[in-house]
Design a protein around this nucleic acid. Structure first.
Lengths: 209, 209
DNA sequence: TAGATTGTTAATCGATTAACAATC
DNA sequence: TAGATTGTTAATCGATTAACAATC
């Protein structure tokens, strides 16, 4: 295993490798970087480099042992260590994320959901009851929460963000279509649906440009 | 206005400019690239280059007229022309997207939703009734649909994708954590939540690496 | 051994940033 | 005119891909 020279782009691909490997582990006890690249539509050298940065288990002529590679990826991605998170904004998208079970594969556990609207407080989604915003502070503290998920409308996003930062959150997953201002030790990952949509739309109208 | 030399990264930023400009249009009739860059946390030269590729309305010393810039961005992004789309998979995420009104700002209109499960067919979300999969073909044809949204579980994604491609869809917005195989004239945009999560998790555990 | 596959070093490519010239 | 701001050309940076050496 090399030093922490994993680029951000490589890091983004690692969960894709992991997901695919899990889906074929029962059929393929071994897999080469070439085959994996073919399956995911990536360049084979790229895959070899990506895997090389998190695993030292590749063997010339044999490739990688699937189970060992899965274990290396899970270890690197911290899938086995639990990451507690809180979610602010229990609208449609927020409830969808609360109900989605797939994040637990990566260690994420949304321990609580909050909403500023009294109409939503008290309802539940994904087995969690939505709480009032004034419960945010003690919930974060009690659960050592350092990851916050923002699924409120754009207008309320900065306020939600400030509250989270004030509670000691160091990483924010922002689904609101807005740029957030945060201290430099806090990382914001924007899930920009409008950006993806722009790429798709341009492809459809592209010929007429 | 220059030729179509807009890079994919620039294209992804354009909706962010547009959203921000709309939010401040009533307060700032003019805005410079420097101020815009500051507001969104981008490099000012980058903003100038981005804007220059879709608008020719920047004036030295004055900057851009906000309304004119909004109009240029909307024109380039095709916000005023309607893009009909279908959605497959009316689970939590699918229903969240159906209910979200914000896409209409960019011209997207989800004309119909489909699901393979009889339990879901007939229910409604965002004012649309979920239909059975055998209605997919004629719906796409009647509405000239070329954009498909996949919000089914990973196991069913390739099948949903094949059905869409068979109906003449040329762009696919994939929310399933899987790589899709498509003909080369079809564009797939993957919304990889697991990738974003990996970046956030690594930031939190990063110091111990 | 021969050959397949890994992993590394070098070359290419694209995007960002810096320096500068143009202009209102 | 002077100065702020745009837009362009050149330099830097990071990521991808290609060529090659190492190894089982």
């Amino acid at each position: 295993m090399r030093a922490n020279t994993v680029s951000i782009q490589t890091l983004r691909r690692l969960p894709l490798y992991l997901h695919y490997l899990k889906s074929i582990r029962s059929e393929l006890p071994r897999i080469s970087a070439t085959v994996l690249a073919e399956a995911l539509g990536f360049n084979d050298v790229q895959v070899r480099k990506d895997l090389g940065s998190v695993s030292g288990n590749g063997r010339p002529k044999k490739g990688y042992e699937t189970d060992a590679l899965i274990a290396d990826l899970e270890k690197y991605l911290g899938c086995n260590s639990r990451t507690p998170a809180v979610l602010i904004g229990a609208g449609n998208l927020g409830r969808a994320l609360l109900s989605y079970g797939g994040f637990s594969d990566y260690g994420l556990e949304i321990v609580a959901a909050f909403d500023a609207s009294d109409a939503v407080v008290g309802t539940s989604a994904g087995g969690k009851t939505v709480m009032s915003m004034d419960r945010l502070g003690d919930t974060c503290e009690r659960n050592s929460v350092r990851l916050g998920i923002i699924t409120v409308p754009a207008a309320g996003a900065q306020n939600a963000c400030d509250r989270l930062v004030g509670c000691g959150v160091k990483a924010i997953w922002n689904f609101a279509p807005t740029t957030l201002k945060v201290p430099c030790d806090v990382l914001v990952e924007n899930e920009n649906l409008a950006s993806s949509l722009a790429v798709l739309s341009k492809h459809l109208t592209g010929s007429g440009e």
